[in-house]
Design a binder for these strands. Structure first.
Lengths: 231, 231
DNA sequence: CTCGTAATGCGACTGAAGTCGCATTACGAT
DNA sequence: ATCGTAATGCGACTTCAGTCGCATTACGAG
């Protein structure tokens, strides 16, 4: 697991460049791993509301002052735990059919957040990340990576001629997964496999219709409800 | 503004039913209004991270202890402010065309969160509401109301024969608005009028294809990627 | 107009989050 | 093997969120 780079970048904004050996040694890495594990356990156990630096310190055996020094409080702990999770690889489907691929992806998302094995950890982690600026930054990076990776299923569909050229793959992925995340983290509605499937199908339909090409719009576009500068 | 009922329901779980006149009088209402206004101002000014009960107390002129007594801390303040905002009416389009109606709705959402007049207040309010259980409950109620109201545009489309019978109107609305909220509050990506339009168009397409009818599935459904119980 | 009661104002107290300076440990290079 | 340095351990201190008991004010009924 290599989660040093992102962390140091997030917590030491003014890293002096003349540091030949900034001690990336064994102890620091071990401490870091244990802190991440303890943070995940604490977030899962108490939820993001009850998350305490002192509890993470006790559970990890790392002193409170060290946690504040390197992670700048609860926010940084959660952000780092999320970053560490983002480094985990996940399977990218390749069935030869866009609809199937998107269904696999949305079902994967659905599974992660409903898996009794993982429990409330993924949900709690993202909810916690939403709380702070550091967490929000980590979230942005997390989803940017996911979008970039998953966009490949759409790009393959373009290569197969299944989608029009110029289709924005990341936008297709966003369209497919957005309803799930919306239910989970915004409207708070329950998630079910049916709606995951429908979201994938709707995105497939829209992508095939050419809605996700920046230049042209394939569907009827009679009147634009707005006319101002869109920025 | 009638935001008493929801608040008391949220903060006094065991309201004794034998309270003939629980003092809904003028002062309480005035205090409540000022506290809500102060909470909105504080959330806008400092963001949900810097929101403090003491600051709301100072700004509103209501004593700290009173705020803790009636709102149980920051969570309740935010939840009540959100509930108050949810009571505000908003325009429901009726252009005679589903696509146009949905575009108006998504553009309305887009406008609320990008209006320089309102500033960061709506975003900050919802972000703050995500932080706590009380806020999450208020959020659920908020979106449930919105979905119920906005579902009418889909129901009218069904009545016009534009959508297949049995279409779940709320699901259509969710599909149209989810990408916007996803960008705003989950992935943290910027919002633009184009994507708002595309989201509405994609939902229109999916609805017309019959994806939002509970029983049948109009598109191809060759293989189901999952087979377990969905709960 | 007067009174009973509920709601608010008030200030002190408690407890925990977060900070600081120094001692100690362990990494990495010679 | 030895040393310089960076990272961690440690405990006290500061600050502020949150609580409690009591005095005061104002609503609502008669």
């Amino acid at each position: 697991m290599r989660l040093e780079s992102t962390l140091s970048g997030a917590n030491h904004p003014e890293q002096p460049p003349h540091t030949p050996t900034p001690r990336p040694g064994g102890r620091s890495a071990r401490v870091r791993a244990e802190v991440v594990a303890a943070t995940l356990a604490e977030v899962t156990a108490t939820g993001y509301d009850g998350l305490t630096v002192e509890a993470v310190a006790t559970r990890s055996g790392v002193h409170k002052a060290t946690l504040y020094r390197r992670w700048c409080g609860v926010d940084g702990l959660v952000a780092d735990a999320l970053t560490a999770s983002a480094d985990q690889p996940w399977p990218l489907p390749d069935t030869g059919d866009l609809q199937q691929d998107l269904r696999r992806i949305t079902h994967e998302v659905f599974s992660v957040f409903t898996d009794p094995e993982l429990g409330p950890t993924p949900t709690a982690l993202i909810s916690a990340a939403q709380r702070s600026d550091a967490g929000a930054t980590a979230l942005r990076a997390f989803f940017a990576t996911r979008h970039r990776q998953a966009a490949e299923v759409a790009e393959r569909a373009v290569a197969r001629g299944e989608l029009p050229a110029g289709t924005d793959g990341a936008e297709v992925v966003r369209a497919a997964t957005a309803p799930l995340y919306y239910r989970l983290f915004v409207s708070g509605e329950p998630l079910d496999a049916r709606s995951a499937e429908r979201a994938a199908d709707a995105a497939t339909l829209a992508a095939r219709a050419g809605l996700f090409t920046p230049a042209e719009d394939a569907t009827a576009t009679p009147t634009a409800p707005e006319a101002g500068p869109a920025t």
